[in-house]
Design a protein around this nucleic acid. Structure first.
Length: 799
RNA sequence: GCGGGUGUGGCGGAAUUGGCAGACGCGCAAGAUUCAGGUUCUUGUGGGGGCAACUUCGUGAAGGUUCAAGUCCUUUCACCCGCACCA
């Protein structure tokens, strides 16, 4: 039976809104469940079916948990600062505030149309003054704690967006926002010292329940490596060259050293270097290359030997040459390496090209052909000779270096400090004042929020400075410390700032005195379950874990880690199997689906289409299948009868169990399939009781809340279905009294028999042998072995 | 190159972790309803063989362990994702 979904959905959305049944309660005595989904960036394009899938997972879990008696916090908000809005504002001359408000209104109405059970009383907007006041407050606290600094470095710069990007935002040499080629630019920029938290972020992973691949990605991103620092004395000067290595065991095999082209020692000893012109020429060439060209394209080793300075190997006192080459990066370790061509592929390539000696120090490979990186017996290594394992050799060498005072154990991370700024308008102003006398001074806490001033022209300056720099009334200020004239910082924070703590604000969104009260935080935090996209696993998640851990360290939040559990949904691909994109024209608009099939169908389909964590293509005809399912459910009213069909009882207990367990494991597709199977059984049976239909709609309610509320009401159910208790099952009733099991002879399936469920092994085997067909096949054969797996199978091995 | 993952019908995908492979849905075929199209309902639907009961092959490929393998082991191929000259 077709039902009027448009009318039903509107009716119940209004009723829910009016009654406020999805508001999290302030009753802190109830068990809590905090479910978090990544709040959207309110773009002009509106919502995408991907958003629907991303939110539907925890939506279903939240609805079920409410019915199970939890006080559920399932909030939503808007991550509204960012470049697309600003670019749109530049193009159309509309203020970003107006664009943002318009987009938020659009998203809100779309989300409500789908019937998500968000707590709309706790909406957070990162561009709201009451919100970004606390974003600035956290920044100020970090500034006070010495975690904020400025440095002139080569930065990733997008000439199109005219902004500096973090390493995370410029992966693959492309701008994450507009995808144009990144160039390297020397610039004075803000950094957050996230590397100071590298170990804490790594250790924190041991305490949380993230999907294994998510944990691994974060571990790789932080990239901790253990090794040693060692100082190689330089000939002709009092200084030594410091290197980092993970293989101190190979030190007797060092035949040269390599430093990064930007290494400061070149400038320092310019006068002593005989071939400084050649070095300068090489360095200039390197500077022209983008980071992308340097790391991705150029696998051929290039370099120049430094003449006039040499190094001394602290292991054996040998004098060795030093080269500059761009295969050594200034940004990792010390920007200098000891090269062991026999046991490192890169050093091997370099040595081959420049004709440098290759000394084997570990047996096991053929160094005439290639570098050997495996384990083996130490040779040509003085006091290390004869040692069999890498571990032991490393320990011995470290001992030696420490004794002589030329090296020590060390740890390095791949993760770099976080470039924290944008030279654009639509972001949180950085609350810092530059005073000619006092230097950098934080804007006093009582002056926060430092409001974004009204601007007419959002175009960034040609030199890459923020539009704020053009506003004299904003820039000119007095120093909070000495009262003298000073200039205000005009950079704004990057997009990731506002999203680094939004989950805390949800706990207490209207608090004017704190970012959230400790009381609320103690009750709600940590987030019990956070679901989002894989693309945010390394950036947003690492950043927010860092902020949260910092807030813990200053006593502002009660727990170390913000997220107890993290999962990720798979992409929805276009009907053609490609990633949905405007340019391919394969984007599905959720509004269109709701118009034609209704919100319940959309919700059921995005969860039924496949494994929640995997990518799956959109299929219009499968959507129709879900529509058919709900139409058939809507018709169940017609076959409600007073008499109970005993066949259905076991089926109901089984389904309650299956749906309950599957939802908790995010196996939504099989939960829905189980409900479809039950529906088929009901149809076969021809009737069901009112109580059974009530149970059915409870199970379906988290997936299709509108239709099920309607059926509940028509059955005379009390109150909202969404507020009733989740069904229970009786384990003993989940199995039929009589079960069908398979009978195999020598492992080959030969038939099936019906046996009572609690039958003994002997009886089961006897029953199998009594089967006419089986008996015939066994005739004249000798039975070797008899196997009975309860409830599964009988296998008779016969010769 | 390193790390992780995935390969099951025409398609999306199931399979209590070693126990009847293909649940559920789509699609397709036949029939019913309908003036007709659509909708809805019924039945069938992995491949080969057979009128049939049945039989045989079958989870990317090849080998192995086991009474029993999609699932465990070895080798191998293809695709996807992340990182990438990280010393």
């Amino acid at each position: 039976m077709k039902y009027d979904f448009a009318a039903i959905e509107k009716k119940w959305q209004d009723k829910w809104d009016e009654a406020g049944i999805f508001r999290a309660s302030d009753d802190h005595t109830k068990p809590k469940f905090y479910a978090l989904v990544e709040f959207p960036y309110p773009s002009g394009a509106g919502m995408h079916v991907g958003h629907i899938k991303a939110y539907s997972g925890l939506e279903v879990i939240s609805r079920k948990r409410r019915m199970q008696g939890y006080n559920v916090l399932f909030p939503i908000g808007f991550d509204a600062y960012g470049l697309p809005t600003e670019n749109y504002a530049i193009k159309t001359g509309t203020h970003p505030r107006i664009v943002t408000d318009r987009n938020i209104a659009k998203f809100t109405s779309q989300l409500k149309r789908v019937g998500f059970s968000f707590d709309w009383s706790r909406v957070v907007d990162t561009t709201d003054e009451g919100y970004y006041k606390w974003t600035q407050w956290i920044f100020r606290k970090m500034f006070d704690a010495g975690l904020v600094f400025r440095a002139t470095t080569l930065v990733n710069y997008c000439p199109h967006c005219k902004v500096v990007l973090s390493n995370e935002d410029s992966q693959g040499g492309k701008c994450d926002i507009c995808h144009s080629e990144i160039v390297q630019k020397s610039k004075d920029v803000w950094y957050l010292r996230i590397t100071a938290y590298a170990d804490k972020l790594l250790e924190g992973l041991e305490k949380v329940d993230y999907l294994p691949n998510i944990k691994l990605m974060q571990q790789n991103w932080i990239g901790r490596s253990e090794g040693a620092f060692a100082n190689f004395a330089l000939t002709g000067c009092d200084e030594s060259l410091r290197i980092y290595t993970t293989r101190p065991d190979t030190m007797f095999g060092v035949t040269f050293m390599v430093i990064a082209p930007e290494h400061p020692i070149i400038e320092k000893y310019r006068d002593r270097i005989a071939n400084i012109d050649a070095l300068d020429a090489y360095r200039e060439e390197c500077a022209k290359k983008t980071e992308f060209e340097r790391t991705q394209l150029v696998k051929d080793k290039t370099g120049v030997r430094i003449e006039g300075i040499a190094a001394v190997n602290p292991a054996n006192g040998r004098e060795i040459p030093i080269y500059i080459s761009d295969y050594v990066m200034m940004g990792y370790g010390t920007g200098a390496i000891m090269a062991v061509p026999a046991h490192d592929e890169r050093d091997y390539d370099f040595a081959k090209k420049f004709g440098i000696e290759i000394i084997e120090v570990i047996k096991g490979g053929d160094i005439a052909k290639e570098a050997y990186t495996g384990d083996g017996e130490m040779v040509n290594s003085g006091f290390l000779n004869g040692i069999q394992t890498k571990k032991e050799a490393i320990a011995k060498m470290l001992e030696y270096l420490e004794e002589k005072g030329v090296g020590e154990r060390g740890v390095q991370y791949k993760m770099k400090d976080w470039a924290f700024n944008r030279q654009r308008y639509w972001g949180e102003p950085i609350p810092i004042v530059h005073c000619p006398k006092c230097g950098m001074v934080g804007v006093p806490y009582e002056e926060l929020p430092l409001k974004l001033p009204p601007v007419e022209n959002f175009e960034p300056g040609e030199g890459g400075e923020s539009p704020l720099a053009k506003i004299e009334s904003f820039v000119n200020c007095t120093c909070p410390k000495c009262g003298g004239p000073a200039r205000r910082e005009t950079d704004t924070m990057p997009q990731w700032a506002g999203s680094s703590w939004y989950f805390l604000r949800y706990c207490d969104p209207h608090n004017e005195n704190e970012l959230a009260s400790m009381d609320a935080l103690k009750y709600w935090m940590p987030v019990d379950w956070y679901n989002g996209g894989m693309e945010h696993v390394t950036r947003h998640m690492i950043y927010s874990r860092f902020w949260h851990r910092f807030l813990y360290d200053i006593g502002a939040v009660p727990c170390e880690e913000p997220y107890a559990k993290r999962t990720a949904q798979g992409l929805i691909l276009g009907p053609d199997g490609d990633k949905m994109s405007k340019s391919k024209g394969n984007v599905v608009d959720p509004n269109d689906v709701v118009d034609v099939y209704g919100a319940d169908v959309l919700r059921v389909y995005v969860l039924f289409m496949g494994d929640y964590a995997s990518a799956a293509p959109w299929s219009e005809s499968s959507v129709k299948g879900c529509k058919r399912f709900l139409d058939r459910v809507a018709a169940l009213n017609e076959i409600v009868s007073g008499r109970e069909n005993p066949k259905l009882e076991v089926m109901f207990h089984k389904t309650v169990k299956k749906v309950t367990e599957d939802i908790d494991e995010m196996k939504f597709n099989t939960a829905i399939a189980a409900l479809m199977t039950l529906l088929n059984e009901i149809t076969d049976a021809g009737s069901l009781t009112k109580e059974q239909l009530m149970t059915f709609v409870k199970l379906l309610n988290p997936f299709a809340p509108h239709l099920t509320e309607e059926i509940w009401e028509s059955l005379g159910g009390h109150g909202f279905l969404a507020e009733t208790a989740w069904p229970e099952w009786d384990e003993a009733k989940t199995v039929d009294d009589e079960i069908e099991i398979a009978v195999q002879i020598s492992g080959k399936l030969k038939g099936t028999i019906l046996i009572p469920k609690d039958i003994s092994k002997d009886d089961a085997i006897a029953a199998a042998k009594a089967d006419e067909k089986i008996a015939g096949l066994l005739a004249g054969k000798q039975i070797v072995k008899e196997i009975y797996v309860p409830g599964k199978i009988v296998n008779i091995v016969a010769k």
